[in-house]
Amino acid sequence: MDLNKLRETAAGIVSRDDVKYLIGWRRGTFGYRAAPYFVEDAAGVEELIFSPLCISNLAAYLTLVEKLPVPRGQEPDQRKVALLVKGCDSRAVNQLLVEKGIKRDQLVVVGLPCPGMVDWKLLAEKYPETEAPVEISWKGDDFLLLYNGQEIVVPRAEALAEKCRLCRHPNPLISDVTVGEPVQPWAPAEDSGVAEVEAKSTPERWAYWEEQFSKCIRCYSCRNACPLCYCEDCILDRLDPTWVNRAVNFSENTAFHLARAFHLAGRCIECGECERVCPAGIPLGKLNRKLAHTVREEYGFEPGLDPEAEPFQASYKPEDPEEFIL
């Protein structure tokens, strides 16, 4: 990845009068962290990075920004937001456009072909986090760590994030400008996570999810990190009617996770953010991917590929499967 090229492009974009800021990543404050970074002027681009640690999906910030009432006599800020996207992130942008959650003319999309990200927790098993930020880059197919002053090559298979092993679209599907050469898509791995659960018997599956959902502390980081969970009035916050009680127990947690997964059915673009941010380590991605498989295999639909597509749950085909109906 040519960082200079990226910074140059970014500087050009943030210098434009019609751009408010650019959302990218910068080095984290310690260990293997990379932080989302809002660049407001050309000087700020020096801190921009794109490395195998930039796993977070920045498209979430497009809808996280609070819409405040504009004071009387002032004009609303109509400037565009620029966003760095990997392949998976670009699908979130597409899906947001499908749902009219954002407007295309208020966006500048900078596409970054993505060779795959690391799951830092896998790295930390062998190379524990250090106080100083660890530099990581791509080296051929593998990852190159600059760890305590030492250069270490970590084989791709050892550290590649799960979502990247399953990735089908490493190149951005929507962008105004692309930095870097397109990468050759790799054969997506079998989704062993979902298959493992499917192979269990019904009571075993229940036991598995009972253990998982019982751990939930309802911090809602999965909801907030998701680029496609952006309802202004979320049913989880509703008191009247109370769809899901706020009490934290297995029953309510399960209802919450069913609601969350269901609301993403046919919309989830499999960026894996929900699972990554979960402090309790609940494999939320499996729920989403299970539904994504069904949508892909039985309805031949994959969300986020086409900004003009019809939203899956708000459309139908007369020949949709109905073998389950009596």
Partner: peptide
């Protein structure tokens, strides 16, 4: 077309419930 939407939606719900171990 209300039942067409229901068909899509509830199929997904059925799959999801099955996946978490509801008979």
């Amino acid at each position: 077309e209300g039942n067409f939407y229901a068909r899509r939606r509830l199929k997904l719900l059925k799959e999801l419930l099955e996946f978490i171990g509801v008979d």
